[in-house]
Every structure is written in structure tokens, then in C-alpha cells.
């Protein structure tokens, strides 16, 4: 037998071996007893349940984030807004103060500025003082 024949024979033997092996393994898989098949179905159901639990956990996390965002919008943001007025060093508060001052001084409508709380009363006092200075200013 030459080398080519040997190789062909070996290939054929390998193919037979692979087919035989696959057949044996198929038989093993198909011959699983009822108890094992039920255990596999149970394992699959538990795996699927773990997936549902994972989504529930993620859903709970999402709801927690949404709640935190709502709390931030309802409770914390208004406080930040009032801080801007309370804090005179805040650029936004300064800009707001200057705008109101200019409007009051230029239009003479100081008395029309709506006052609603102590902070705005202090602001109005400041504006009244500025207006008084304007009225009592002596150009000479």
C-alpha cells in the first residue's frame, strides 16, 4: 500500500470513527432517564426565573433613580433658586438686583415693585435709599 492509499484509508477510518462516536453520543443524549429530563427542565425554568429577577432588580433601580430625580426637582432645585437671591455674592443674584434697581430708578416705578417676603423688603429698602439719593442730589 502506497502513502496515498494509506492516507485515504486513514481518512476513511477517521470518518467512520467520527460517525460512530456521534452515533454513540446521540444515543447517550436520547436515552436520558425521565428524572434527568425533568431536572434539566427545572434547571431551565430556574435560569429563566433568574433572568426575570434580574430585570425586576434593574426596574427597581430605575424607579429609585426616577424618585431621586423627582425629589431633586421638587425639593432641592427651589432651594438653590432662593439661595441665588439670598446670597449677595452670587453673580446671578447681583445681576437680578441691578436689573430691578435700574428699572426702578429709570422709570420711577419703585413703589410698584411687588414685595412678598423679608428678603424683598430689604431689597426695597436699598432701592428706596437709592431713589432718595437721586431726589436729594444737588448738582451744584
Amino acid at each position: 500500500m502506497n502513502r496515498q492509499d494509506e492516507a485515504a484509508g486513514s481518512d476513511h477510518a477517521d470518518q467512520v470513527l467520527l460517525q460512530t462516536a456521534a452515533g454513540f453520543l446521540d444515543d447517550e443524549a436520547n436515552a436520558l432517564d425521565r428524572q434527568t429530563r425533568m431536572a434539566l427542565a427545572d434547571a431551565r425554568a430556574r435560569a429563566a426565573a433568574s433572568r426575570r429577577r434580574q430585570w425586576l432588580a434593574w426596574g427597581g433601580g430605575g424607579m429609585g433613580l426616577a424618585l431621586a430625580a423627582s425629589l431633586t426637582a421638587v425639593v432641592i432645585m427651589p432651594r438653590i433658586g432662593s439661595d441665588a437671591i439670598d446670597n449677595p455674592g452670587n453673580p446671578a443674584a447681583l445681576a437680578q438686583l441691578k436689573t430691578v434697581q435700574d428699572a426702578a430708578v429709570n422709570d420711577g416705578t419703585l413703589g410698584e415693585v411687588a414685595l412678598t417676603d423679608d428678603t424683598e423688603s430689604a431689597l426695597a429698602d436699598d432701592l428706596a435709599f437709592v431713589a432718595w439719593l437721586e431726589e436729594n442730589h444737588d448738582p451744584s
Binding site: 447517550e28 443524549a29 431551565r44 433572568r51 430585570w55
Partner: peptide
């Protein structure tokens, strides 16, 4: 969004015996 889990269930059912073996 999660794919319908019945697809995965069907796939796993088709391979579970071989996997166990």
C-alpha cells in the same frame, strides 16, 4: 428591551440534553 424569553427557552430546550451529556 429583553427578547421574548420563550425564544431562549426553546433554544435551550433543544440543546440541553447534549449539553448535559
Amino acid at each position: 428591551p429583553p427578547r421574548d424569553s420563550s425564544d431562549m427557552d426553546a433554544f435551550l430546550r433543544s440543546v440541553e440534553r447534549r449539553a448535559y451529556t
